[in-house]
Computed example of a mutant assay.
Amino acid sequence: MPSPQLAVIGGGQLARMMQQAAIGLGIHIRLLAEAPDVSAAQVIPDHLVGDHTDLDTLRSVVADVPVVTFDHEHVPPEHLRTLEAEGHACRPGPHALLYAQDKGDMRARLGSLGVPCPRHAAISSPEDLDTFGYPAVLKTTRGGYDGKGVWVVRSAADADEAFATGRALLAEELVDFRRELSALVARSPSGEVRAYPVVESRQAGGVCAEVVAPAPDLDPRLDAEARAIAERIASELDVTGILAVELFETADGRLLVNELAMRPHNTGHWSIDGADTSQFENHLRAVLDLPLGSTAARAPWTVMVNILGGAVEDLQAQRAVVLADAPGVKVHLYGKPVKSGRKVGHVTAYGHDLDDVLARARHAAALFTDGVSP
Rank of each mutant, 00 (worst) to 15 (best):
A204S: 15
S278K: 09
E231D: 05
D273H: 08
T240S: 11
A215I: 03
D273Y: 05
E246T: 01
P197C: 01
S278Y: 13
T250Q: 06
V257N: 08
E192N: 09
A213G: 06
G253S: 12
S188D: 03
D219F: 12
A213V: 05
L256A: 06
V212I: 15
Q279R: 06
P264N: 02
A261N: 05
P220H: 11
P214M: 08
R227M: 04
V211L: 09
L218W: 11
Y196N: 00
I229Y: 01
R227Q: 15
V198S: 04
G241H: 07
S235E: 15
S271K: 03
S201I: 00
D223M: 00
G205S: 09
T277N: 14
T277L: 08
L237R: 12
D217W: 01
E192A: 14
V257K: 12
V199C: 00
L237K: 13
L256T: 02
L256M: 13
Q203W: 02
F248L: 04
E236P: 06
V245C: 11
G205M: 13
A228F: 03
H269I: 11
Q203V: 02
P214T: 07
S271T: 14
Q279M: 07
S190D: 13
E236W: 01
R202P: 00
V245E: 02
G241C: 05
S190F: 03
G268R: 10
L260V: 09
A228E: 14
E231S: 13
Q203Y: 15
R227F: 00
D276K: 12
G241D: 08
A228Q: 14
E246R: 00
E249T: 05
T277I: 02
A261F: 07
I242F: 07
G206N: 12
R202C: 11
I272L: 15
D238E: 15
A234G: 08
D276W: 05
F248D: 03
R254K: 13
L255H: 07
L255R: 02
A195I: 02
Y196H: 01
S278H: 12
E259V: 09
R232C: 07
E192W: 03
P189W: 06
R194D: 06
E210I: 00
T240K: 06
I272A: 09
A275K: 03
R227S: 14
P197D: 13
I229D: 01
S278W: 06
